[in-house]
Design a protein around this nucleic acid. Structure first.
Lengths: 329, 329
DNA sequence: TTGAAAGCGCTAACAT
DNA sequence: ATGTTAGCGCTTTCAA
């Protein structure tokens, strides 16, 4: 650029990178030129050799409020740094790791990956070449860090709450098969805890798992549950979205919390709305996002041994849960 | 890369770009090498000269469901193309155009900009250098395209609905001052239509504008409204989030729709929830996103004259609106 | 302290 | 049809 502005390119480069060996006079000359020409260094050109000061965030389910919360935390954490956060949304269908690849191809300095579908060994290989933090999945890893809410603890909180209210016939509402098969994934863990708790308490015969592939399906799934023989008096839903759909059905039928108690997961903002008032598990999504960025920056900074960070969830009791009617005096 | 793999770099480049002048035999040799080495071309290096096949999406308010909806549409539209969508989240505080700059610095081939705060002349200059589509803002432009819902029509739908139900004392609930001062911005337009409708109908003396800087403020603002002399029988809220907060307050006080009718804007998914059942204006956000991408690709493809695309909103009547009590027989 | 020059991974014009 | 070569905008030795 400013080689047209009377200085050498090296000088410009040095000034921009705040490197050693520029006189104050030279510096101000260059800065003036930069200002005058509205010059912006090309990240692309720079990234060809060194760091791009860009960190990538892979995100599927753009419209998932819980994930957006996490992203929001990440953005807040990175704001004061020199780094820029870039989000690559994975397409709904989820054809592999295209979004992640895009980030890699752009030469991001590090990656926050949410993808529950990415294969562990593929991630492992990726992470051996660049800093990676995996979010929201319990996993063994050699090369990447993991940040996750403690889903085991969270799911137990939910189950204990229902059980201590006196519920026995507790059903679990979750997504399609494919989301619960990937081991370590939040849906999978929550399901497992559900099954475990039911079994432990001698409630195995009441186990019922309802699945909804799409949000719309959730209502039908709930209806089916209620129409089944020996219907549940409570539902532990994998997340608030599902829980709210279940609540919809309950309200439709005039069922109160003592007829059908419902617990969600995530503490989405609207769960606190008076008309919804959903009992749920809070795992402060922005902390997850903040941790992810923090760990990633540490790695970019040179750390190589694995770190794992787990946030503790808490139970938020609202009006969607109550003692089952039969148990009330 | 594969200059280690027995072929020339030009060959590799050609194969990758699917360019003219490679024999099938050469092509398969190269492809094999690519496969074997797990080679990925560097977008950064490529972008230094030609296109990066990346389009940038600037987004503030990551957690705003209406905006996420738009983004979702954009992602869907771009999925089948060769382009990759990259999102740069603007930090909440909104210090100028840092996010947009980041996208420019990465050498995105085009930009979808949502930023209501970006100055028009700055955008104009940017757009003279690269393809830009502005979303969600009514604006005069020389160099960039504009995609927007018809907020005038939408706001009128809302107002007409309330008026035809018999409401006179209609208040408007919107954000802080700064969001309604930028002319052409959705909040500004909706406010203006509100004022205009009230004046036109001879209801000027009932004009009340309540403002909420943060979501939490909305409840207080609504309470203040209800506590004022001659309180409104209806509220037209700038968006569903605000409307739902108002609804919260109404429900808290045991007010029904005939005591206080509420209309929102955006038709967020939860507005349709039975417990909320918010009357609102739908403007099919994903269409906005789709259009934005479509226009942008056209521009990247060479179009230079300005195009404007406006989607027509529709009224969705639910339970949050009714005739005012005094008007009922 | 400064600038010249080589090279990063790629594309594109050119020569073979 | 293929390979050679000169950049693209930057960083980074290395001499001056």
């Amino acid at each position: 650029m400013a080689r047209t502005a009377g200085v050498s390119r090296a000088a410009v480069s040095k000034v921009i990178r705040d490197a050693y060996g520029v006189s104050p006079e030279m510096r101000s000359r260059v800065e003036a030129a930069i200002e005058r020409l509205g010059y912006r260094p090309s990240v692309a050109a720079r990234a060809i050799r060194g760091p791009s000061f860009t960190i990538g965030f892979e995100l599927h389910e753009i419209e998932n409020p819980a994930l957006n919360r996490i992203l929001s935390g990440a953005v807040a954490e990175i704001a004061p740094t020199d780094y820029q956060l870039i989000v690559a949304p994975a397409v709904a269908g989820g054809e592999g790791h295209r979004a992640i690849d895009a980030l890699v191809d752009l030469r991001a300095d590090g990656l926050v990956v949410v993808a529950p579908h990415a294969a562990s060994d593929w991630l492992e290989k990726l992470a051996s070449r660049m800093p990676v933090v995996l979010l929201s999945r319990h996993d063994r890893s050699e090369n990447y860090d993991i940040v996750t809410g403690d889903d085991v603890a969270g799911a137990r909180l939910a189950m204990h709450h229902l059980i201590s209210l006196g519920h026995h016939r507790i059903a679990h509402l979750t997504r399609g098969e494919e989301t619960t098969t990937r081991e370590g994934t939040p849906p999978a863990v929550r399901l497992e805890v559900y099954l475990d708790e039911m079994t432990q308490r001698g409630l195995a015969r009441h186990i019922k798992v309802a699945r909804a592939a799409t949000p719309g399906d959730a209502r039908r799934a709930t209806s089916d549950l209620l129409a089944s023989a020996n219907p549940p008096s409570a539902i532990f839903a994998m997340n608030d979205d599902l829980a709210m759909e279940a609540l919809h059905v309950a309200q439709e039928r005039g069922l109160s919390a003592s007829d059908l108690s419902i617990v969600g997961y995530d503490n989405v903002r609207l769960a606190g709305h008076r008309a919804i008032s959903l009992t749920t598990i809070d795992q402060s999504g922005d902390d997850l996002g903040r941790w992810a960025v923090r760990l990633l920056l540490e790695r970019i900074d040179g750390r190589t041994q694995v770190k794992r960070e787990t946030t503790q969830p808490s139970l938020i009791v609202r009006n969607s849960t109550d003692h089952p009617r039969s148990e009330q005096h």
